[in-house]
Design a protein around this nucleic acid. Structure first.
Lengths: 246, 246
DNA sequence: GAGCATTTGTGCGTATGTATG
DNA sequence: ACATACATACGCACAAATGCT
């Protein structure tokens, strides 16, 4: 199969060489020569292929990176950018619905389950006594098999003691809560910060350690306004942007 | 004036040395011996003062950092944490009101002003023709003299050509818009990502280059639903957390 | 850019105190 | 009394980030 476009460049035809390289690579990415997330040839290989200096290739790559088509990682290489998922957060945010609306397949994998006593902060957020039993469920959520976020959820054990078992049986939060009598729930507030990932977080989210993660803390309440869940979710900035619709 | 607490530590009395150091420093911070934002003595100085190994001091510092009382910066030192500002974003977000509600004094400094033609993206966001004139205003906003965010704002020049002059005359966005006939405006959507700061951004926001910034992109519309402003604001994660209230 | 001082970050080896069976 | 396990504390060396010349 021939290349999508001839790689030969026209010198002094009024279009800078780096522009021609940029356009060639852009067409090849659009045409599927390089798949989403795939590694591009190294700058050295590209400069050999186009018969130009590495600086010229770099100029083209910088432009592609600036336009968001590729992602350059120092010391690793360059990669075709994956589509960013718009993770819309509003009063009625449901993970699986958000992902399906983007025509992707949601999945959740339970990483960890624990039981603990509520400390001062948890107790305040959930409106329960300090020292009351809490169940914690941590899971990795993905879209089309690509990890999107790590969510750590805390539920009052008195009301939701069965939560860990339900979620390990493959339920999402919404259906698990429904099974325990919570027909509906709404998000109260969301606090957003950003920080560098721990090595484990970077591995789980399959993103470079040099890239920050978004940390969103939120509380969900039932129809009576009683807190049912307090959680911290860490999003991969490589693959998601958070959209708030007031 | 004597020290708030004697610095001498009790060995093998059931309380680990690092705990005693943690408590001593905590009391000194609370007592104002070290002011908000002030640099603490180096680990070497503290280990000399307490007569312990540097590791022992580090253990105490890690705990204080985990609890959010101090902030540790490699190669620079450790600093007493400043209170984080809750930057609440909703339909009616006004910078100066948000800051005043936290009992801090807001300020804005115009960094840059420019005129340009709308590219594809800007034109879509603002609902104008591609190539139409746009005015850009970039400013550094602070609370109590501490930089909080860098905002880059784009306005359609046809309607808001006087924007740069008004803002350089010390107006905020709200009063400048009011002077041009926009009595009220509302935020439509906010898209949130995080990335590492450029060196210039880190300097302007007075935060370490190793700490990520929050990037919020938003559109403001007038009462008729017509876009009046499209902007990108970069927040210092050291001093702000963004709160969304649905 | 190179070089240097300062400061925090990390790893490894070792000794000792504390709790448990 | 002894063995074991674990957290605490120390000493030393080097890595990494920052700021300055």
């Amino acid at each position: 199969m021939p290349d999508l476009t001839p790689s030969s460049l026209l010198r002094r035809d009024g279009v800078a060489l780096w522009r021609q390289i940029e356009q060639t690579l852009e067409r090849e990415i659009a045409g599927g020569v390089f798949a989403e997330g795939a590694q591009l040839p190294t700058e050295a290989q590209l400069s050999a292929r186009f018969g130009v200096n590495r600086h010229t290739v770099r100029r083209a790559m910088e432009e592609l990176s600036r336009r968001g088509l590729i992602r350059i990682e120092q010391g690793r290489g360059s990669f075709v950018a994956e589509d960013v998922i718009d993770y819309t957060i509003g009063p009625r945010t449901r993970f699986s619905e958000v992902i399906r609306k983007q025509n992707r397949e949601p999945a959740g994998l339970v990483l960890r389950v624990a039981e603990m006593a509520a400390d001062q902060n948890m107790a305040e957020e959930l409106g329960i006594r300090r020292g009351a039993k809490i169940v914690m469920v941590e899971r990795l959520v993905s879209a089309d098999g690509r990890p999107v976020a790590i969510g750590t959820h805390y539920f009052p054990a008195a009301r939701f003691g069965a939560m860990p078992r339900l979620m390990q049986d493959g339920h999402g939060i919404t259906t698990a809560l429904a099974a325990m009598g919570v027909q509906d729930y709404a998000r109260k507030v969301s606090r957003v910060t950003a920080r560098m990932p721990t090595p484990e977080e970077a591995d789980l989210l399959r993103q470079p350690r040099s890239r920050p993660i978004l940390v969103v803390e939120s509380v969900n309440v039932d129809l009576q306004g009683v807190a049912v869940e307090w959680g911290v979710t860490r999003y991969a900035t490589a693959r998601v942007q958070i959209v708030f619709e007031p």
